[in-house]
Amino acid sequence: MTEYLKDALRKIASYCAYQERTQQEVRKRLDKWDIYGDDAEELIAELITQGYLSEERFATSFAGGKFRVMGWGKRKITQELKQRGITGYNLNKALANIAPDDYKSRLVELIDKKRGLIRDDNPLVVKQKLARYALSKGYESNLVWEVLGAEEE
């Protein structure tokens, strides 16, 4: 490894140590530094070997954070992770870390909070707005309607 690449490795390792990154983000950063092809792949392989770069770790922390902090559903998390180049095993593992009970109770919590903000007397309009809101957050339609239906009983 040349001195230039060793210096680049130190810089990119620092970039990855700051927060979890995807390989796609690292490649973009290396592109900005005019490091391409085999050199970039060598640096990425070294980051993985040294533990600075792990897409599984990134996906798990991203999914958990977006679920807990932003209240995102699995559909929205999946879409965002796919945009960031995370698919397959890592994506499934990240979603599996969201407990089904927590997932449903978070949806109920979001719907209850939103209900307090809706100013409409027509129950059908309120239900439609709640469903649209929950779907926009990335929750599955069958779960949304199940939760909204259970509230009527």
Rank of each mutant, 00 (worst) to 15 (best):
A131E: 13
S54M: 01
Y18F: 12
A13C: 06
E153Y: 07
I35C: 11
N142G: 03
P123Q: 08
V26K: 06
K82P: 00
G88W: 02
R115L: 14
G138Q: 05
R84P: 07
V108K: 13
T87H: 15
T60N: 11
V108Y: 00
E20Q: 07
S61K: 15
E80N: 08
F67R: 01
R115H: 06
L143F: 00
G88L: 03
S61Q: 14
R119W: 07
E140D: 10
E25I: 09
Y139S: 03
L135I: 13
K28W: 07
I118N: 09
I12D: 02
G149W: 01
A99I: 05
V147L: 03
D34H: 13
I44M: 10
K129H: 12
A13R: 15
E56F: 01
Y36W: 13
S141H: 06
D7L: 12
V26C: 09
K74F: 00
A8P: 02
K32W: 11
S141R: 14
T49E: 15
P100T: 11
N97Y: 09
P123K: 04
Q50A: 14
N92F: 01
R115E: 11
L135K: 04
A150V: 00
R115D: 05
R57A: 09
E20N: 08
N97L: 11
V147R: 00
L107E: 01
W145L: 10
R132W: 10
Y52A: 07
K114E: 14
E146C: 01
K82L: 11
G71R: 05
T87N: 12
Y89I: 10
L95P: 02
Y103W: 06
Q23D: 09
Q79K: 11
L135N: 02
S54K: 01
C16H: 04
Y139C: 02
E140F: 05
R132G: 10
K82T: 13
L110P: 00
L91S: 09
W72A: 00
V69M: 12
A17Q: 14
I111F: 02
V108F: 00
A96Y: 02
G138K: 04
Q79R: 12
R106W: 00
S105V: 03
R84N: 14
F62L: 05
F62C: 08
Y18N: 07
K6H: 11
I86C: 02
Q23C: 11
L110R: 04
Y103C: 08
L95R: 02
K114D: 06
D39A: 15
N122L: 09
R29F: 12
E151M: 12
K137W: 05
L91F: 06
S105W: 02
V147E: 01
G85H: 05
A131P: 02
D101I: 07
C16T: 05
L5N: 03
Y36P: 00
A59M: 04
D112Y: 00
Q24P: 00
D39I: 04
D121W: 14
W33A: 15
K11Q: 11
L91E: 05
K137P: 01
L95M: 10
A150P: 00
D31Y: 08
V69R: 14
K6G: 14
N97R: 15
